[in-house]
């Protein structure tokens, strides 16, 4: 499997990375090498291997539904670039809704 320059440009856009033309070239080569390396796995016969959804052999790790102290608002906001003491402030977002 090869990675095209277009693939890299699209992934870059989705990740909000402003890649220069030169960077696109480098990334395309490097990503192709990485994917090519991993694709060695495709040479193995895995038809008898159960799919692995998680590398750890533990499951069902839960916590009880008991409230714990939260941060104070001041603590929560202290690293924000901008806030008004109550909320985080971000540039106006209009006409869009977040996916849930």
């Amino acid at each position: 499997m090869t990675i095209s320059r277009q693939d890299v440009a699209k992934v870059g856009l989705l990740a909000r990375l402003a890649l220069s033309e030169a960077e696109l070239d480098t990334m395309t080569t490097e990503l192709s090498n990485i994917v090519g390396f991993v694709s060695l796995l495709a040479e193995l016969d895995t038809s008898h291997v159960e799919p692995l959804a998680h590398p750890l052999d533990t499951h069902n790790v839960f916590r009880d539904d008991i409230p714990l102290p939260s941060l104070t608002t001041a603590e929560a906001l202290q690293s924000a670039p901008r806030h008004d003491g109550e909320c985080f402030l971000v540039p106006a977002v209009l006409n869009e809704s977040g996916a849930a």
Binding site: D65, I66, P67, L68, L71, T73, E86
Partner: peptide
């Protein structure tokens, strides 16, 4: 209808002042 959030112990009570039910996990 839980008392706390899905992945941390912050309360899910509706109507609290903004950013008073937050912790490092949900932030």
């Amino acid at each position: 209808q839980t008392r706390t959030k899905l992945f941390c112990g912050c309360s899910t009570q509706f109507g609290a002042p903004p950013n008073t039910q937050v912790c490092p996990t949900c932030l």
